[in-house]
């Protein structure tokens, strides 16, 4: 680990000032400390934001939910408002990592966590995300866990967050604060596909902080849930996952929100699947037909072709589970 200075501001303006001068924010630290130890991250200055007032889970006036950036994954997952209104969020969180890591990691940090691509994490390998222009060792290397959607010539790394998949499905908004003030970014615009610049992973401007994520109100009743498919039954990142939220009224699907994880360079909204669902009656045949569009546009690599079919079946299964048909 490279040496760094450490500060712990107690106010947001002080933190922003430290961030503006190049400080790297640390919240839970589960990604940053790990990557600093691998020397993938080499900040000169670490700014501890744990003391900032960015906690709390609150209902918004519009009937949605606001989760503070520094709320731990554990606390967010078990919060009554989250559990009752958005089980898909609780489930995505509790299927992530381990109890220890969930106690440490924050909501903001979870969204910003960096890829698990083995070549990104190994400084002796070529990686455009870590070292722009150095190449991508994963494309022709071992890429079983890599992305099939949203990839580019420069990068095929998967976004690892489960929570972000649920937030993508639910049309969440990311609340930001910087020295120029506050702003909001739609979740779908917040995490960036790699394109030619895989080192740019999100819409944060230098020194900006996430203050909260907001989930808008959705028509009720809303059934939602998260399915995570992985080799090991716990403590592992997803091979594929599906976040599904359905509003079914009068026997007809009125709104459908579906996103997939483990398959994209960013959490992948499955709008083609949603279009198949809306306005139709839930039946097993519908789930299969809609899920058949889950991998539309996917480009598999040498070792992850299996994700095409697996993604479709993951989505089909979770549509059935959430949609309540046998």
């Amino acid at each position: 680990m490279f040496p760094f200075t450490y500060t712990r501001p107690t106010s947001t303006p002080a933190a922003l000032a430290a961030g503006a001068s190049g400080g790297r924010y640390i919240a839970g630290g589960t990604t940053l400390v790990d990557l600093m130890r691998e020397t993938v991250e080499r900040p000169d200055s670490v700014v501890d934001i744990a003391g900032l007032p960015l906690g709390g889970v609150t209902a918004t006036r519009g009937g949605g939910l606001r989760i503070g950036a520094l709320v731990s994954m554990t606390d967010a997952a078990r919060h009554r408002l989250v559990r009752t209104a958005y089980p898909v969020i609780s489930q995505a969180l509790e299927l992530s990592a381990s109890p220890q890591l969930r106690n440490m990691a924050s909501i903001g940090g979870n969204i910003l966590q960096r890829t698990r691509c083995t070549y990104f994490r190994d400084i002796s390998a070529a990686c455009n995300k870590r070292e722009p222009g150095s190449g991508c060792a994963a494309r022709e290397g071992w890429n079983r866990t890599h992305a099939i959607l949203g990839t580019s010539q420069a990068c095929v790394a998967t976004h690892p967050s489960d929570l972000a998949v649920a937030l993508t499905a639910l049309d969440a908004t990311v609340h930001l604060i910087g020295s120029a003030g506050t702003r909001q970014v739609a979740f779908g615009d917040f995490l960036l596909q790699p394109g030619a610049t895989p080192h740019r992973e999100n819409a944060l401007r230098p020194g900006e902080l996430i203050t909260a994520v907001e989930i808008p109100a959705h028509p009720r009743p809303l059934s939602s849930g998260y399915l995570k498919v992985r080799d090991r039954q716990s403590y592992e990142f997803a091979l594929t996952s599906a976040a599904v939220a359905l509003h079914i009224d009068g026997g007809v699907i009125r709104t459908a929100k579906v996103a997939a994880g483990g398959v994209g360079t960013v959490p992948w909204r499955l709008r083609a699947v949603e279009r198949q669902l809306v306005g139709r009656r839930p039946t097993p045949q519908l789930w299969a037909r809609a899920a058949g569009h889950a991998a539309d546009g996917a480009r598999p690599l040498a070792h992850n072709r299996f994700k095409l079919g697996l993604l479709e079946r993951t989505v089909e299964r979770q549509l059935r589970v959430v949609g309540g048909t046998r």
Binding site: R116, T118, R232, Y235
Partner: peptide
């Protein structure tokens, strides 16, 4: 140990 998987308790 995140990529070389050994059984965990849940397995």
């Amino acid at each position: 140990l995140a990529d070389y998987l050994v059984p965990v308790n849940a397995d």
